[in-house]
Design a protein around this nucleic acid. Structure first.
Ligand SMILES: NC(=O)c1ccc[n+]([C@@H]2O[C@H](COP(=O)([O-])OP(=O)(O)OC[C@H]3O[C@@H](n4cnc5c(N)ncnc54)[C@H](O)[C@@H]3O)[C@@H](O)[C@H]2O)c1
Ligand SMILES: NC(=O)c1ccc[n+]([C@@H]2O[C@H](COP(=O)([O-])OP(=O)(O)OC[C@H]3O[C@@H](n4cnc5c(N)ncnc54)[C@H](O)[C@@H]3O)[C@@H](O)[C@H]2O)c1
Lengths: 246, 246
DNA sequence: TTTCAAAAGTGATTTTTATAACAATTTGAA
DNA sequence: TTCAAATTGTTATAAAAATCACTTTTGAAA
């Protein structure tokens, strides 16, 4: 445990586990086994245990994991015990859809300020109570409030220039909805949300199936699949995006 | 070439290459080398050549790749030479942001119909000319028009039941914005667009850095990095989501 | 108590993916 | 016509990640 390099996929899975743990907690479930939780997350139970083992030992052999405590542990690992303040750049349709959504605040993310370039937007009060500010104020606000996270939802051609400003102002993580890869220095992380690429992978698979060029379907159930009423789905955590990090 | 199992990450990268090829074509660039294109996509040039080699030989040694022809080839591989009709389920903020966006039609995706449950939405004319239809019509429309792709943007609690209807009606690929994993039978593909998970990976990394628990930074430039004016970013294609497929 | 079944933790193994290295081509200039 | 530079295609190697299989621990029932 510890020291070892932790796979990026592990972090993603932790986030998925966390979500199910929240649900279990809400349902009053006290204890959960690796198989149960892994099944919910559609991963191999050994994988789940391995994922956790990078960080310590949190279960009780023969028993399972305490839901509340594991949830707390994972939240801590992900850095989610504190509130995170976020700036939104680009108050277009995507940006506004995000602002409205309760999922973020539930997870501890708070939109602290919203910026746009368009004169027609600036000063407008948005649903949810945010007022759009001029992009010129961005560096000041970030620096003064020590904000570390940004959501980038400007037109893609603007992505790099805004990213440069964000980095310059001290932002450490960018959730990028734009369809261009951006370059950031080491120490700043970027995650891409790229719908069209995901659609393309769907069309690829459908085309494959249609042309009879099927994937070698391993029709055997995975050993760890439990009996249940719906079709068994092969666990399949896939690379699903491209991320520039440094 | 061929036969071999093709990594999911390869398909994602093809989509990224395709995007840059489009841009090159628009700029009148006729020929591109693996290093140039790979650099744009932030991957290793050997990786790019390997990716292409799964499907055939498309370049000219000593010269490079013909932009127009490679673009066409990749589009063909991804199944993007034809138009794809898509149904949207859930005309909330996310759904509407998608409808409005020109990126999709540019890539050959056409929203063929929009469905919602809410009486207040049904019948409404949305920006872009779509009329919201009652969810009850969904199976009929999908079957009659032979639609294979769906975008799922309903409240997450509804995700599974709607997915079941989609599958039952003949949908082969689902782009899922909901925050629950859905189960689908073999032969149907699902891709998840899950913003909060991506934010969580950002907070994880930032927390790591803040606690001094830094990643072992390999400060050496990758060999294939070219000289240029911005900071060199280590290529880093990461697992970036969780996808259930079958 | 003792025994058994359940289930975590983890080293060993397998599988998958990425990178490197180099032979084979091609072009163009000497 | 020959040589050198550029650049692909591909095999070999390395790295990373997932899975297996076994050991240990626990709790509860006999
Ligand atoms: N908007 C975000 O920032 C965000 C972030 C994370 C996740 N998501 C997820 O994306 C999905 C959509 O987000 P949103 O903000 O547009 O959601 P929303 O809940 O505001 O809107 C969903 C729409 O679906 C419709 N609907 C409800 N039940 C339906 C049914 N049975 N059949 C058809 N339509 C139905 C509703 O009438 C509404 O118009 C949600 O699952 C949400 O959790 C959104
Ligand atoms: N909406 C989608 O379905 C979708 C799909 C794929 C990709 N994207 C990408 O997501 C991003 C945002 O999408 P959208 O539909 O909200 O975009 P949009 O272009 O409609 O809105 C972007 C907003 O950014 C503002 N803006 C422009 N220049 C700015 C600047 N220099 N500084 C600050 N603000 C600026 C604009 O005024 C506008 O309000 C785009 O990059 C788009 O390519 C969106």
């Amino acid at each position: 445990m510890r020291k070892e390099k932790i796979p990026a996929a592990t972090i993603i899975r932790l986030s998925v586990y966390q979500r199910y743990l929240k649900r279990l907690l809400a349902n009053g479930v006290k204890v959960v086994s690796s198989s149960e939780l892994a099944y919910e997350a559609s991963v191999n139970p050994a994988q789940l245990r391995k994922d956790l083992s990078y960080f310590g030992r949190f279960g009780v052999r023969g028993v399972g994991y305490d839901v509340a405590s594991l949830l707390n542990t994972i939240s801590g690992i992900l850095g989610l015990l504190d509130e995170w303040r976020v700036v939104l750049v680009g108050a277009g349709p995507i940006g506004q859809a995000l602002l409205r959504h309760p999922q973020f605040s539930r997870q501890g993310y708070v939109f602290e300020a919203v910026f746009d370039f368009d004169e027609n937007h600036i000063g407008k009060q948005l649903e949810g109570g945010h007022t759009v500010r001029a992009i010129e104020d961005l560096p000041k606000v970030i620096k003064e409030r020590g904000i570390q996270l940004a959501v980038l939802a400007v037109p893609s051609e603007r992505a790099q220039e805004i990213a440069d400003v964000l980095v310059e102002s001290g932002i450490k993580g960018i959730l990028n909805f734009c369809t261009t890869r951006i370059r950031v220095p080491r120490g700043v992380s970027v995650q891409y949300v790229d719908f069209t690429i995901l659609l393309d992978t769907l069309t690829y698979k459908i085309s494959q199936n249609n042309t009879g060029n099927k994937e070698p379907v391993s029709s055997a159930k995975p050993k760890w699949a439990r009996e249940h009423s719906w079709p068994v789905v092969q666990s399949n955590i896939q690379r699903q995006g491209v991320s520039l990090t440094s």
